[in-house]
Write a protein that binds this DNA or RNA. Structure first.
Lengths: 206, 206, 206, 206
DNA sequence: TATGAATGAGGTTTCATTCAT
DNA sequence: TATGAATGAAACCTCATTCAT
């Protein structure tokens, strides 16, 4: 712990903030949200509790901050278009696979998020708003790149994407954090892919 | 326990247990699980803290107890058969509607459950096991009543029911406790009904 | 526990008192004094807590009662005389052995006693007074039976007996309940026997 | 820890730890271990309960800490050698006197120790281990200083010292905390001195 | 800017005892 | 006499937050 070969951020504000958030998320994953105290975060991060409170004005603040980096690019345009126009099974499956893999890689963060939302729904508002904005912006971008999609009302595309994304999200959460009804990941992926496409068709084809 | 022939004197044991659970659930709904103390439960229920601990050996125990009443008969045989054999849309929709209505009526309990699972997954184990057992038993019963279903392997039916039920559950939870992407309940119900049937077909038709 | 083949005392006061004390002592041995509650005693004894408080007005009262039967005859006259007059090694050794064996057999009671004394010294007063009386009476009896001893002042004999008995008691307690410095019981017994005789000689021979 | 060159600001950490232990021991002496709450300790020490738990992670921890200061140098080499080689009565008596005096001076601590051992034997383990180590180390030192003793096996000396020390300890405890059979301290001291020497001879002379 | 000692309200739980039945 | 539901003070301990240094 003390011979951690990572004295990268010392004296720099950015690095400390990052360190606090990372430590916070890591500890939540290890011990559960309610068992992580700010004092512990400080200790594990090798900082004083005073320093933590210099950068974050409350525990909830750290939680909020921990959600910011969450929304990443998980799909590129060409894939999105293939999925939205021809409902390409393989591309969709790949998307679902990547999403699951990402959730597994950042298991801690997503689990912490799950807990945080249950405990403090307000914390979720920000995240959801960011997500809405992201998807709206993305769908607009997609429409600019494809003639067929351009004819569909923007809100329809946005709605379809939102629903299918939420479905994906909720099924993966269910699988990872609650109960899985599937034998293996492959089965989950296939099932989710089918429902994902089903959802898109439902909203885009009429 | 309820037909125990000894109402001799003591002031209504059953009623008190129920009162504690109800108070607990009500408060959780108002303030969130971690913000509800056992002392507050006692106070709000008009009981002493000692009495609460006479009936429940820990806070977690109250939570456990609150889950027991959760799994109720939400479907009858003839409906189940209609859904499983001819995938009847209206019957399924009615089922989904009833499920949503039930969740809204017992909004507090289900929200508490959502929170509790995120915080303490162990509490969930019991519930999930009960649910598994319930569905397995139900699927066996259904097979006894229908010649066509009798030919399908029991575990296939059970799996299909489990998946569709979990889908229903997860979509309703998402809608009520996280974010809704739907304009109104009707839209949610229709969407969920379609996915529900889609899931059943996926597993039963092959 | 319920099929205990011992419905001996039911309806009789004496039996219930005995049952309560025995249960109390047994539980103390199992869980330590501070971890035994009156409610638990009642439960384990198959009685209601109300009944326990009908017979004992407080927890301390039970403790007091538990000490009454403690002082037993652990030596007979002829042995005592052999020890007090010719300091017979083998007889003394036998006495020490018996004392140790008795402490091991009633380990629970003596351990409970040890704890009780540490926690509530008052409880000990009674016991010690009884012991003093017992030894005084015994030494008088002994003097009536032996011409040589009759010439020694009663209080000298009594003192010698008291000291050697306390030495025996304290060494056995040390061995059983604290730390033993001996390889085995035999070594303890021999050491104690020698000190016991040494003490007697010290006070009787001058 | 005490020569740590950082008296920069904070209000005397060392002093507070000492204060907590002293207060704890004083209160135990007045009211008995089980009747002393950590809150009371804090109040009486003029500290907040949080401060107490900053320095000790549990009530038992305070108890443990209170034992550390117990094993002190109660004998010097030249005295030890006089006692171990020529069984010098006066030197031994002085040792016993000093031991008794020390127990009387720190009456509270030793009484607390007595109680603590009876209630929680684990707490005692540490103390006993430290004592064993101390005596072993001491006996080795003694052998280095005396040609005669050097010829005796180290474990024989160690055993003899251990036994006689425990005898001393147990007799003084019996006298102070349980029942005294002695008219005055002088009588106890003489009796104990004789048994102490008797024990040493028993193990060293053969 | 960094520190970390100090705070104390509040959390969960226990248990000796009472008293209505 | 027997019951056992009810009591509630008090126990141990946590932790977000502050502020003097």
């Amino acid at each position: 712990m003390s011979d951690n070969p990572e004295p990268k951020f010392h004296r720099d504000k950015e690095g400390k903030i990052k360190l606090i958030i990372e430590t916070f998320v890591r500890l939540i994953n290890q011990k559960g949200y309610t068992n992580v105290s700010t004092n512990l975060v400080a200790k594990e991060a090798g900082l004083s509790i005073g320093t933590v409170y210099n950068y974050f004005k409350s525990k909830e603040d750290i939680l909020q901050a921990a959600f910011q980096g969450t929304i990443e690019d998980f799909i590129d345009f060409s894939d999105a278009i293939k999925i939205l126009t021809i409902y390409d099974y393989d591309t969709t499956k790949m998307l679902v696979s990547k999403f699951l893999a990402s959730h597994k890689e950042y298991y801690q963060l997503h689990k912490a998020q799950d807990q945080a939302i249950a405990i403090n729904h307000d914390v979720f508002q920000n995240y959801q708003k960011n997500l809405d904005d992201y998807i709206l912006a993305f769908s607009k971008q997609v429409q600019l790149s494809d003639a067929h999609l351009a004819k569909i009302p923007a809100e329809t595309i946005s709605k379809a994407m939102m629903l299918s994304f939420n479905l994906l999200d909720t099924l993966v959460h269910q699988h990872l954090f609650r109960t899985s009804n599937f034998e293996n990941d492959e089965e989950l992926i296939e099932y989710t892919t089918k429902l994902f496409i089903f959802t898109l068709k439902l909203y885009l084809k009429e």
